[in-house]
């Protein structure tokens, strides 16, 4: 099991109802973690439209998660 910190932004923050949480999970990759959180919180964005960042850097959907990681899911961006 991994103990993770998750930060939420924009649409995901609103749908989660909070900006951060700590979670103990069996999810071993960002893809698995998003699927778990989506099922629990009803996120409307499908997993393939959300990028992941681990500890402040973009990460692949199948990158390994380790205890202590900070995970951020990045909804489709719209700067400018």
């Amino acid at each position: 099991m991994n103990e993770l910190t998750i930060e939420y932004f924009a649409l995901l923050r609103e749908q989660r109802g909070q900006a951060t949480e700590r979670l103990v999970t069996a999810a071993a990759t960002p893809a698995a973690l998003y699927a778990e959180l989506q099922a629990r919180h009803g996120f409307t964005l499908p997993g393939d439209r959300v990028r992941a960042a681990i500890n402040g850097a973009f990460a692949a959907a199948d990158a390994p998660l380790r205890s202590g990681d900070l995970v951020v899911f990045i909804p489709p961006v719209a700067g400018g």
Binding site: T44, P46, V77, G79
Partner: peptide
């Protein structure tokens, strides 16, 4: 910058509704 930066834009409309741009999903 528009394509890559993790920045999000929420529009507030005259109709009173709001939307996060590029985050719409078909229900």
């Amino acid at each position: 910058a528009k394509a890559r930066l993790p920045i999000w834009k929420k529009e507030h409309y005259a109709s009173g509704t709001t939307a996060w741009i590029n985050c719409a999903t078909r229900p």
